[in-house]
Design a protein around this nucleic acid. Structure first.
Lengths: 197, 197
DNA sequence: CCCAATCTTAGAGTCTCTCTAATATTAGAG
DNA sequence: CTCTAATATTAGAGAGACTCTAAGATTGGG
């Protein structure tokens, strides 16, 4: 039961991801065909769709990790924990999760990041997945913080945090530390950007 | 130069929108083909793509109005105006813009709203357009409020406001006034959801 | 009434994605 | 080692979105 089978599947999957990202980088996302990706990975076009439901999904491989991260954070939440702390802790956990099949400094990670920012179809997919995380997060936050937050408030809060992060990180100036910026943004999204008049 | 031509184009466009939304409602978005929409509007499939670049775009018809609204709001901004007021005024203007080809109480507006919430592909498109508005907004806000806000801060602020609104409005309970909720959400996104510890 | 600009359309073709049926590969039992 | 059952791969047919080109129809202005 060790899994020569599993191992082979894992390698095929990885080969498809690498082939796809490489071709996307060289020729552009739209100009790259699934047939081309499959050929480069040494597999038939039909097999591609055995591993990924859509062409775009290959860019988001291994994403679902975020669901587990959320579960984990809220499993360790204490009843007395302030909501703000819980929110910040969640962001920290989400930011720290390595959800990708390459290490952060891998060249293809850079390619993937650029693709997500530049190709509209991929950016749309990213926003959709982001929103899904927000939904799940809001639900958990709501049921954990009992009567302090209703559904709408919880959704607004998580929406604000994720919206602020997404918008800010896309304009990241190179000279500033990412983690520092993230903490700053979350703090402001939770406690306010501007003082009350 | 009056425009029998223009008038005819306008009617064809409207017919396509109505046909599309009606069929989407009856048969579902995916099950509806462009050929079907064109047939119902009494026009050839090729003509559909003369009016809308993609099948999905027919749902977002007349959206670009938001760009003009932003221009208008910032054209009337006074240098002394507090940032928070400017932000709230912008939201008010965006919410008040009737960007649709049907009045708000038209049945097809309800269909459109439900489609945007339920069909992933359309929701993705909506989020993408929303983000585009946010980008434009952030840029104008940044250049208007001179040194008070840098690019990243402005983006975070607009991202938070739009993110909070998007998330909250999707969970709108029927018993609450929409405009009241919008004002409340914006206020919190700008001035904070939770007090500092 | 006619010309020129503009709209519509048919048709061919590419690509994503689905489905089905056939083939190949592997795990585990004998 | 061999056979069998489960699983993976594949070819092929086909639907549907979208592109492009060239031909046909309609309209505005002279």
């Amino acid at each position: 039961m060790a899994g020569l089978r599993e191992e082979k599947k894992r390698r095929t999957r990885q080969a498809l991801i690498e082939a796809a990202l490489t071709l996307f980088d060289e020729d552009g996302y739209d100009a790259t065909t699934v047939a081309g990706i499959a050929a480069r990975a040494g597999v038939s076009p039909a097999t591609f769709f055995n591993y990924f439901v859509t062409k775009e999904e290959v860019v988001f491989a291994d994403q679902p990790v975020y669901d587990e991260v959320l579960d984990e954070v809220f499993a360790t939440a204490e009843p007395a924990e302030p909501v703000a702390d819980l929110v910040k802790r969640t962001v920290h956990a989400l930011a720290g999760a390595d959800a990708w099949s390459f290490p952060l400094d891998h060249p293809l990670t850079v390619v993937r990041t650029r693709l997500l920012a530049t190709v509209p179809a991929l950016r749309a997919g990213y926003l959709l997945r982001n929103a899904a995380v927000g939904d799940r997060w809001a639900e958990k936050l709501c049921e954990t913080c009992a009567p302090q937050l209703d559904r709408v408030e919880a959704a607004a809060l998580t929406g604000a945090v994720l919206g602020a992060l997404e918008a800010a990180l896309r304009r990241l100036p190179g000279d500033r530390s990412t983690t520092e910026l993230v903490l700053d943004i979350v703090d402001r999204a939770v406690h306010g950007f501007l003082p009350r008049a």
